[in-house]
Design a protein around this nucleic acid. Structure first.
Lengths: 231, 231
DNA sequence: TAGATTGTTAATCGATTAACAATC
DNA sequence: TAGATTGTTAATCGATTAACAATC
C-alpha cells in the first residue's frame, strides 16, 4: 500500500487554462497505460507519449498536489483517480443538447461523451418540424421548457448546435434557465456572464488553421526533421 | 479608390499559431460586418465584437501587412480579401473524409465546411460492411486506394474520424499517400513528420475543460461581474 | 549504496497590453 | 484644424524549459 498524496490543492495559485487542457491528455494517456498493464509512469515517459516536455508534466501535476515519488515516478491508478476528481469527471454530467441539425444529431450518437460520463438527457430545438420527434428515446422539446428541465433533470451543461444567428439569443436563454456551462458549436462569439463557462468548438477555425499551415509553412520551405505531436 | 496595402508579409517573423487562429475570427466577424452593410471598422470595434484587446487586433494584422489607415480604420472589403488569401481559403481544398462512423457521417453533412471551400470529395473506411456504400453521391473506398485518389483528385487535406486504436496507423498511411494536412478527431495524440500539419479536434478534452471550470471555478467563489466572450 | 526521478526555483522564452508618435 | 486611429516600440505579464537539491 502506498501513502495517499498529501493535498489536492497545495498551492493557492489557480491552474491556468492550458494546464487543465493538458490534464485531460494526461488522464487519457494514463488510462491507455493502465490498459497495457503498467503500474507506474515517469514524467518523461508520460511527456514523450504526448509530445510534451518532462518538466512541464511535473509542473502541471504539481499544481494539484504531490502525486509522484522521487526515483519511482507516478502510480498510474492513484493519479488517474486524482485527475478524474480534479476535472470533475468522477460523476455524471446531465447535459442538454440544443439544436438537432446534422451536427447535433451526430453528437447525440457520439460514444466518446458517454465514455466520459457526459450524459445527453434532454433535447431541444425550436424548429416546429422537429418538435415532438424522438431520437435515442428522447423527445425534442421547445427551449421554452428548458428552465423546467434544468430543475427536474438536474441539467448542468448544454451543447449548443444552433445556427450562428440564433446562438446568442439561445445562449442567453440557456443561461437564464440555470445552466452554468456551454459547449458552443455555433460559429460565432458568445457573451455570457462571468459565472458561466463557455468552451468554443470552432470547426471552421480549426480547418482554416490547417489550411494556413499547409499553404504557408510547408509549400516552400521545410524545417528540421524532428517529429511533432498533436492530440 | 484606395491605395493597395503595401506588403502581404512585411516582417520576417513567422506568425504565431495563436495569431493565425484569431485571423479566422477576424475574417468571420468582418464578413458579418459586411453583411450589415458596413465599409470600415476600427481595431477597437473589431476587438470588442470578439472580446479582444484593440492593440492585439492591430498587432495581429500587422504581422501580415499594413491594412489600415490612421484615423479611418480598416476597409472591410479589402481586409476580408487579404485575410482569405493569407489563410489560403481563397481557393478550394479537396478533402478526404476517413472513417464513416457517427461523427464522420455528420461532418459529411456539415454545411460549415462547404461554406469555407473545404470540399469533401472522397470517402474512406476499412470496415467491410461500409465499403461500397454511398453517401452524398460519394462511394466509400478502402484506404488502400488513397494514394491513387490523392493524385487523381488532388486531395490535400484529410479529416480523420477513425477509432483511437487505428488512428496512428491510418495517419501514417495518409501521410505516405501524400496528404499534408490532417484534422484529427480521434481521441489520441498522433505523431507525424514535420512537413505535415495536424490540428486536433478533441471533443472530450473540451468537455472536460468545461466540467472543470463549472465544477471548480464557479461552484464556490465568483469573480467580478464583467463579461467574457468565446467563439 | 548508486541510479532514477520528483518537486521547485531560476532562467528563458513568448505573448499580451499600454503608450505614443505618425498620419489620415 | 481637431479628433480619431493606426503601426510599432516598450513594459508587463504569463508560460515553458533548464537545473538541481531532496528523496526514493
Amino acid at each position: 500500500m502506498r501513502e495517499p498524496h498529501r493535498d489536492a490543492s497545495p498551492s493557492s495559485k489557480p491552474a491556468p487554462k492550458a494546464v487543465v487542457g493538458r490534464l485531460s491528455l494526461y488522464l487519457r494517456q494514463l488510462e491507455t497505460f493502465a490498459r497495457q498493464g503498467r503500474e507506474t509512469v515517469s514524467s518523461s515517459q508520460l511527456g514523450q507519449a504526448l509530445g510534451l516536455n518532462d518538466a512541464q508534466v511535473r509542473k502541471d501535476l504539481a499544481y494539484f498536489g504531490q502525486f509522484g515519488q522521487p526515483g519511482l515516478g507516478y502510480p498510474i491508478e492513484d493519479l488517474t483517480v486524482a485527475i478524474r476528481r480534479i476535472l470533475g469527471v468522477d460523476r455524471d454530467w446531465p447535459t442538454a443538447l440544443i439544436g438537432l441539425g446534422n451536427l447535433g444529431q451526430a453528437l447525440l450518437g457520439y460514444k466518446g461523451f458517454r465514455l466520459r460520463r457526459f450524459r445527453i438527457v434532454a433535447l431541444f430545438d425550436n424548429d416546429p418540424r422537429k418538435l415532438g420527434k424522438s431520437f435515442d428515446g428522447l423527445t425534442i422539446r421547445h427551449t421554452d421548457e428548458l428552465p423546467e428541465a434544468v430543475s427536474s433533470q438536474g441539467l448542468r451543461l448544454a451543447m449548443l448546435c444552433v445556427p450562428a444567428e440564433a446562438a446568442q439569443r439561445v445562449a442567453d436563454h440557456v443561461v437564464s434557465s440555470g445552466i452554468r456551462g456551454i459547449l458552443n458549436f455555433a460559429p460565432t462569439s458568445l457573451f455570457v456572464p462571468p459565472d458561466v463557462s463557455i468552451v468554443a468548438v470552432d470547426l471552421s477555425v480549426q480547418l482554416e488553421q490547417l489550411a494556413y499551415s499547409v499553404h504557408n509553412l510547408l509549400g516552400d520551405s521545410s524545417p528540421a526533421d524532428d517529429i511533432s505531436a498533436a492530440g
